[in-house]
Write a protein that binds this DNA or RNA. Structure first.
Lengths: 229, 229
DNA sequence: TTTTCTGAGTGTATGAAGTACACTATTAAA
DNA sequence: TTTAATAGTGTACTTCATACACTCAGAAAA
């Protein structure tokens, strides 16, 4: 069935920059395009917005279809509307970024016969369309936002050690943090719950595990608290 | 001429939240809708994105067409894509916010036979579509952003007094600031140029005029400086 | 069982920045 | 000349950021 309109309409797509926390770097999940244009090039997961789904639903659907990811933390980034960003026709894309616990998903994308893979942000391949620009903006947004909102936890397992938490910030912000100052600050915020549980399977003293208390965070915010790293 | 596509396509629009600095409050420029849906209701200036213009160009064009504003400071806010945000059909809108020097434009919108008027943000009329939500997000964005980027100057005349500058922040942030601390901080940033000129036509001691040094700001940012109020 | 290795966990001193606060000076108008 | 209105200025105190090094615990290897 076809649809006719009085004026020409741009096609509307969504694209997702999926971030995972690698050993020493942030990583981004890319898929290899099968079709023209940019066949064989790496690109962000994404696709057309259906007429009966919201932008966010479209982003979640495409993520699941193309990468198997579900229930990720997703946030709208920016809309890109350069006239010729797609060589075929006018396409406007609403870009999102997602944060996932890489451990849950690394194997899948890597071993799948599929065409999805993780890349360190400092070593991305040439990307299709204007996707390099989108990744760049997503990185900047993430680096800024992680400092004043506790979204970085989305990159970690539910239970984590303070060292893992610190490393997450060090990787994203690309600078080292002082261990004692970091602990003083983060524990002083009173947002972490100290668990009666420690790390397992490590060849050294096991560190205590913590979890993030989201309910408490929202309560504190109402009282004027503002998170800051 | 009509255009036919295989799949149904959403219509794409832009909407602008135009802020001006009122006496004691931020104000927003609204237009009264002539046509259905929401005929006679107040709404944000905006309209359809043409197939051969970028999103930002569309926003600027609509602003000029509907309100006469030109050369405003414009920044993309967010894209809204709820299924039924327009009762006629699926419409996705890319929202922008703009900052203007109200003194330049107040008269025009007010005296024009036109259907545009300024409203204090605390006293907005019922708005068409989801425009109340858009204004709300724009306000939050502006209040957050004004604290870490020197965009507030866009609301003032090129030359301004320190008291006017302080009042601008007080109005946006909705709290009083200490005069001496404010001056110490803002002058300490070394972003203002002290002019050899004072206020005119005031019935009291005339205050010195300053201007914002954008070139210097960009240079400092490169060196790691970060603006903060 | 002892030793070694690896990361866990902890406090203090210093400097920088934020905050609270009140009076005199200048100009125009009455 | 007096009045009214805003301009313009400094200091003391408190809070927060920063720099910095050692002992402890536990597993693995000798």
């Amino acid at each position: 069935m076809s649809h006719t309109y009085e004026y020409a309409r741009a096609a509307l797509t969504v694209d997702c920059v999926v971030f995972g926390l690698g050993e020493d770097e942030l990583e981004v999940l890319l898929i290899r395009r099968a079709l023209e244009p940019f066949a064989n090039r790496w690109a962000l997961p994404g696709g057309f917005v259906h007429i009966d789904e919201t932008l966010e639903d479209a982003a979640l659907r495409e993520l699941e279809e193309e990468t198997g990811l579900r229930k990720v933390y997703l946030e709208q980034l920016y809309s890109f509307g350069a006239i010729d960003r797609d060589p075929r026709e006018r396409v406007v894309t609403v870009a999102y970024y997602a944060l996932v616990k890489l451990s849950d998903h690394k194997v899948r994308a890597a071993t799948d016969a599929s065409d999805a893979a993780w890349f360190a942000v400092s070593d991305l391949p040439d990307l299709a369309f204007d996707h390099a620009q989108i990744v760049d903006m997503a990185l900047n947004r993430l680096r800024a936002k992680v400092r004043y909102q506790p979204i970085g936890f989305e990159l970690l397992a539910k239970k984590f050690t303070l060292t893992q938490l610190q490393r997450m910030y060090e990787v994203i912000l690309e600078r080292t943090l002082d261990k004692r100052n970091f602990r003083k600050k983060i524990l002083g915020m009173d947002l972490l719950v100290e668990l009666d549980e420690v790390q397992k399977d490590v060849a050294h003293r096991a560190a205590r595990l913590y979890k993030f208390d989201d309910r408490r965070y929202r309560k504190l915010v109402k009282q004027g608290f503002s998170f800051e790293i």
